[in-house]
Amino acid sequence: MPKRLQFPLFLLRKLLKVAFTVWVVTTLIFFLIRLMPSNPIEQYIQNLVIQYGMSYEEATSRAASLFSLDLSQSMFAQYLEYLKDAVRLDFGTSFLSPGVQVSEIIAARLPWTLFTVGTGLILSFIVGTALGAIAAYRRESWYEPIISGLSSFLSAIPDFLIAIFLILFFGVFTWWGRGSIVPIFQLRGNYGAGVNIGWNWPFIKSVLDHSFVPILTYFFSQIGIWVLLMKGSTTGCLNADYAVIARARGLRPRKILTSYIGRNAMLPIATEFAMRLGFIIGGSLIIEQLFVYQGVGLELLKATTNRDYPLMQGIFLIMTIAIVLSNLFAEILYSLLDPRIRVKGGSKHA
């Protein structure tokens, strides 16, 4: 009975935390831009004055419209204005392509990143947990050290180095005198030149061709972690008392593996998966740069090198919000999967 009361409370506390985190990050960005000794707005105004010979007032109003800030207001009023925009996910317009909303740019880039990183994550999760479970069940087999060894190797190496190895393996090295596996031009960009964008087969094929090695990179850079996590989790559950008793109860081995060991072993893994969903949005900047893959990460990079501040803050905020929300999702998921947590979570601060 106390359980029913506690769940909304638990949810409320988590939501407050989400709001707080987002607020911290937005504020951080605001003050990074406004309060730094050589803050970018001031720099921009100076630039306009020096380079284009504008008057200071003219330059200021130009900057204000670009940053969607009223620079004549007090700092606090500006901050409130900024927060209001941020809540509506209105980040203003881009510096480099004036008149284009930041949110539009993000919306255009997001599907590409979601597709590659998401596919890589899901594939690595499925294969990794399966391999991890096998490694745990067959602890004495000859192939267990191979699975575990390769996994810890892959989990240690930075993802962009894996990308370089894969690019060399697929696109550069020639095998048995037959040329590379994938033509090198397929390792750059989202799709080939000369295809019509839309739901037609040449375009889809081109997209798949171009995304193959990037997805493989995301796959290899995450599979090691899934294998190790799943192996550890399953090994713990294999020797758990309830698994031993289930065997003493004469349950069928398959039943024990799925309902007793598998279900418990998946608890922390599913939570981790939910948490990682948030990283799909950001993807990996370096990997998108290596494959010249036009996604959110590469856009953030371009925005940074071009000092396109509204775009930078927009992308960064979206990335953070995604992670915060996926953390929330993970916590709710865990509380739903594990009946023990709801009560614990509710009474933690009681």
Binding site: K17, V25, L32, M36, L285, T304, T305, M319
Partner: peptide
């Protein structure tokens, strides 16, 4: 609590963003 909040900020993108300011 602060540590929890801090951990949700993506670190590498933050570094990239910061390198735009400093």
């Amino acid at each position: 609590f602060l540590a929890d909040v801090w951990l949700t900020i993506p670190r590498f993108p933050l570094l990239v963003v910061m390198s735009g300011f400093f």
